[in-house]
Design a protein around this nucleic acid. Sequence first.
DNA 1: TGACATCCAATGCACGTGCATGTAAGTTTC
DNA 2: GAAACTTACATGCACGTGCATTGGATGTCA
Lengths: 128, 128
Amino acid sequence: MEAVVDEDVCTKWSETLRVYHNTSCELENSLQDGHDLGLSEFEVLKILSRSCGKHGGKAKMKELEAEMYLSQSALSRTVTRLEKAGLVTRATCDFDRRAMFLLLTPAGQERYEAAQPTYRAVLRRHLA
Amino acid sequence: MEAVVDEDVCTKWSETLRVYHNTSCELENSLQDGHDLGLSEFEVLKILSRSCGKHGGKAKMKELEAEMYLSQSALSRTVTRLEKAGLVTRATCDFDRRAMFLLLTPAGQERYEAAQPTYRAVLRRHLA
DNA sequence: TGACATCCAATGCACGTGCATGTAAGTTTC
DNA sequence: GAAACTTACATGCACGTGCATTGGATGTCA
């Protein structure tokens, strides 16, 4: 019977919804209050911090876009906010001048490392 | 070691994020394109349709608010949209004239029933 | 080389959301 | 019964998002 599947699927969905909402709300609030960072801003710093270790301090916009659940335009503005806050620098790529490299500034690295414990604590509280 | 827990928790979170985003985006698009309904609008109709069966066609705003992940103001505006579309009616309560009852109109019931298969199909595709 | 398609990022715009506040109705305290 | 408090809902406002478009750079093909 399909009805059984539907019920099961609905339960799974409402559970996902609950976890997502509780967690992301608290992440948003904690990061904002404690570190003046939005969740998607933190997420950019996180990815950037990872790939900066690997690629010598650079990451392309397109790479970021592929790794997070954000439209191209939203990402562009998120980066603009981070740049205004001095946490990130934009740099044009010499080989393809359409593309942009992103660099984590020392302030950005510092802010990310300060925020990471908060982030992990919230995740642990909700998902452990 | 805490690092192990953190990694596990991060994986769980990114999985939740993935499922939530894919599912809710497709729900939003399918419901909008096929039935001219936003996801939170559909959710209101869904709850209303359930409790209308039980309570003789009525549900209070506060009840809705408790059952969905939406702020009081957002819910108020969602109901306004539904009312403008003729899918729902607001009615003041005689016993507590601060409170509002919501009624599903025949058009609302019809729209909900038309949209439900779409909704379930998306959930099944992503969560089955 | 010139014309055309494709790609990357930024921006105008509309929209839904949350927070803070306003307004009106009910409740409590004296 | 008047004043202070609480509750229910609506609204002003700021903000982040997605879609569509633009502007500039690159690639392709004749």
